[in-house]
């Protein structure tokens, strides 16, 4: 199944990826990473991710990889 991998230590929690995901599969964690940012994670229990790459295209920290 298509999916994405988010490197949480590099994420700065800007949330640009959250907004572009057509299925709203990305959410911000309440905990912080070592940089002090609330990072984002993929929450896709129903495996809806299509590997469309929109989130990765938006990510300014280039911490999203997409697999299809």
């Amino acid at each position: 199944m298509p999916t994405i991998k988010i490197e949480s230590e590099k994420c700065k929690g800007c949330s640009l990826c959250i907004d572009v995901c057509p299925y709203e599969l990305i959410r911000q964690e309440r905990t912080i990473n070592h940089q002090g940012y609330q990072y984002v994670v993929l929450a896709d229990p129903e495996e809806q991710c299509t590997g469309c790459t929109l989130c990765a295209l938006m990510c300014p920290d280039i911490c999203i990889e997409v697999f299809k």
Binding site: T3, A56, K68
Partner: peptide, 8 residues
């Protein structure tokens, strides 16, 4: 599964 988006 193939990686379709990676860091350059």
């Amino acid at each position: 599964m193939k990686q379709v988006f990676a860091k350059p």
